[in-house]
Design a protein around this nucleic acid. Structure first.
Lengths: 243, 243
DNA sequence: CGAAAAATTGATCGACATCAATCTGTGTGG
DNA sequence: CCACACAGATTGATGTCGATCAATTTTTCG
């Protein structure tokens, strides 16, 4: 069994959607970029891109010149771990917008890979900024903020429990350091119950795992207080200390 | 053991941070809302709010008049399932911004609960919109889009495998319907391997669980194609069909 | 100090991972 | 058109990590 491709089932499979029901509609409209099937006009701006199954719409780390909307097909956004493992972050359906992280950083944060032959509308950032010219700088600051938020979403519910615990601790540590706080020794600030909830596990498992890791010398732990060992801080990647 | 509160350990525990290292800094500055410790001026606008441990900064579903930045302390954002179960979505540290969903919808999407005595800066939306007055409407459209993105983040890595599968299927179904596509019968569009990756499980488990659910009559399944049973569509909550 | 919440520790069980084999469907070339 | 190859999917047997149930111990606070 391979991917769906029979022509007559395209709509049930994945689109295309009308511009009206696309998340990018209001923005395209304000940019005079509508585009397809607008009333009877049907003028196209030629901003369509077709990507075959398995091909990438964009790659993590590359300069971002456009945001995209899926018109037809499906796209997975993927984070590739340093060890080469793929983690699917989200699935985009027709009408969904891709690459909004381009607003803030001007780099894509994820790989966007077509799951099947996919047609996307491409909206260059240059068009947006041109239209935004008169907009107050405050607006762009808000946009930058929001944009960061969408990328920051780290999840702590993947992998083994020890991996999740390490991910949480290193996340707390790094975020504290970014704020000028002590990232080496700090209070967890959460009960074991709250940690368990966040990591989608049980309080007994959190307790046991923390104890074991502490015994194994990954950090010193005393109640709420945790102090990372020097070796731990050298690791930059989630899961690096697991087991 | 209860929460950290010893005065001399406040900084290592949770702040306060300087305005300069806060995510809201650029926005506050443009609103002439700096506020605290600005050079030697130290003029305060009185926009501080103190929340005791366990108290709520805001509640899901209530009208949103402000966004917040944590100055000192910690806050958990929580989704309360219909069955009353709490799911921690994120932990906010000093310098983090809370309530950005207020930009789009004017309702908070989550409960924000202080993990300890917490001091927040409050920035009313009215101040923002006043400053935004001359900003082009396009900017606000972009903001709305981004705002939605930050809320939409559904994770499929919580609960049992059958719960995750149901969550994924209903998510696909609803998102398709919102786009005017068939939400009852559609192709998954992903290989079992990709589903397994997304749900943080194994291909064999996905296969087995899909087979079992299909046998149990939750849906008809044939390769990529899935057709939800009428009963399934009546359920609106994730996990409603589990096991 | 005493009560209550939080945390730890132990014993047992079950869901899911893992390893392995087989089956099914799709596209390809003779 | 059929045989073949291969990716994808299914099914089975077994092992293990984390859930669950239960009992203490530790910490905090009135």
């Amino acid at each position: 069994m391979t991917r769906v491709s029979s022509p007559e089932t395209v709509s049930a499979a994945a689109g295309p959607v009308s511009c009206r029901s696309c998340d990018l509609y209001e923005i395209c409209r304000r940019c005079d970029r509508i585009a397809i099937e607008e009333e009877r006009g049907l003028r196209r701006t030629g901003a369509l891109r077709t990507v075959r199954a398995g091909a990438r719409l964009y790659r993590a780390g590359t300069p971002a010149h456009s945001i995209f909307a899926v018109r037809q097909g499906m796209v997975k956004t993927v984070r590739v771990d340093p060890d080469g493992e793929e983690r699917i972050v989200a699935i985009s359906l027709p009408g969904d917008v891709l690459g909004v992280e381009a607003f803030g950083e001007h780099l894509y944060a994820l790989d966007a890979v077509a799951l099947q032959t996919t047609v996307c509308c491409e909206l260059p950032l240059s068009v947006l900024s041109e239209r935004c010219a008169r907009a107050h700088e405050l607006a762009s600051a808000i946009i930058t903020l929001l944009s960061r938020e969408t990328v920051d979403q780290t999840t702590f519910t993947r992998g083994s429990i020890s991996e999740r615990i390490i991910a949480l601790i290193l996340d707390l540590s790094r975020r504290r350091e970014r704020r000028g706080l002590d990232g080496r020794r700090f209070a967890l600030g959460m009960t074991r119950q709250e940690i368990a909830n966040l990591l989608d596990t049980r309080i007994e498992t959190v307790s046991r795992t923390l104890q074991r890791m502490s015994r194994d010398g990954q950090f010193d732990l005393s109640g709420q207080w945790l102090e990372l060992r020097a070796a731990a801080l050298l690791q930059t990647d989630r899961g690096a200390l697991a087991d």
